[in-house]
């Protein structure tokens, strides 16, 4: 189990390989990578992620512990960046390992839904019109709520 918060970029492929290398005997691994987005009709030049690292580590650690128990994961890791990021750069990587694929998929999906609503990161986008804070979306709350059933 691990949580890593960092300003520096990470290499999603290398992280995946390292995760898999320590996964002897498991049947299924899922990795999800979130990237800085920019749309043609709403261009973003950079994204600045503000974080509360002490709270983020505690919150994500709890979510991983819950995911492991709930889905029977063998292990799970989350890497999350903060600071200034360029379009296309990886922001977050979630990796889960389980005996079977459904548990690995569900565990990764649960962790991402959790990160979108309960992890203390705030996004500020730089656009041609200036900087703006990204507001929390209610569909993320809905995605998170489905795991409460």
């Amino acid at each position: 189990m691990s949580v890593r918060l960092q300003q520096a970029p990470f290499d999603p492929g290398a992280e995946t390989n390292a995760f898999l290398a320590a996964s002897a005997g498991a049947g299924a691994a899922v990795t999800f990578t979130g990237l800085v987005r920019s749309r043609p009709d709403d261009p973003v030049s950079t994204l600045t992620l503000e974080s509360y690292p002490e709270l983020a580590e505690a919150q994500i650690g709890k979510a991983i512990a819950e995911a492991v128990v709930r889905f029977g994961l063998i292990k799970a890791s989350v890497i999350h960046r903060h600071g200034r990021l360029a379009v296309g750069e990886p922001i977050v990587q979630v990796m889960t390992l389980a005996p079977h694929r459904q548990a690995a998929f569900d565990g990764a999906s649960f962790l991402m839904d959790y990160l979108k609503t309960d992890a203390p990161f705030w996004k500020k986008e730089a656009t041609p019109e200036g900087e703006r804070w990204v507001e929390a979306k209610t569909e993320d709350d809905d995605a998170r709520a489905k795991w409460n059933k």
Partner: peptide
């Protein structure tokens, strides 16, 4: 005690 806006997540 930390006070902050709702989080849009990663």
């Amino acid at each position: 005690i930390a006070l902050f806006p709702p989080m849009p997540g990663g």
